[in-house]
Amino acid sequence: MVKEERRIYYLFSPFLRIFHWIMAVSILVMFVSGLLITKPVYINALEPTYTLFLVDVTRSVHFLAAFVFCASLILRVYGYIINRGDRLFPRVLEGHFYSETVDVALHYMLLKKSHAPFLRNPLARMSYAGLYVMAAIEIVTGFAMYNMADPNTIGGFLFGWVNTVLGGEYMTHVVHHYCAWGIMLFVIGHIYMAIRADFMEGEGEISSMFNGTKLLEHEPKDACEVEPPKTK
């Protein structure tokens, strides 16, 4: 039995945490329903009348999850506004960000036994930023396809340009589909890294998405992002 002292850092507001789990479920639903839209399975019934798999329903499920996902972004934004711990994005304008990235990368490549303690390390920050970019791509391409059923609506006006930028609506489908796979690759890496972080550092990585806190033994390098600056 080892006894050690750890500090509790409160990071994530309830809004971010609720958003996170809504996102997790809805992305999974959208991924599966999306693939089924591209390649519908035909469940052969006795007669066509009783076909079990309806593309219509699959699309509705996809769109419902999409609307829930987009609505939950409001929670994320609200958390971002009220809570500093919800703003852990890459500090690409600060020089130390890059040296720290290299440090963490060396550890992840198993070339270093450990990396400096962080509330959220620079690589994780970048991967989450990447996820948000991919989610944004899914949203704009998704709504472009969705709203162009009638180009003369406000939705068509707001998102129709996406099809023009990508060079045609077929390309919008392709980008939407490729990006969906990109998100899935992120998901695999993300789940692994979260479990690994808990295993290696025991900082409560996974439970932080439930209770909002992480437990750190050493003062993290980015502590100043959630705490008022220390007066020396």
């Binding site: 519908p40 035909y42 469940i43 066509p48 076909t51 593309v55 219509d56």
Partner: peptide
């Protein structure tokens, strides 16, 4: 037929 998931393969 699309909505009902009935396709030519």
């Amino acid at each position: 037929f699309f909505d009902a998931g009935m396709f030519a393969d």
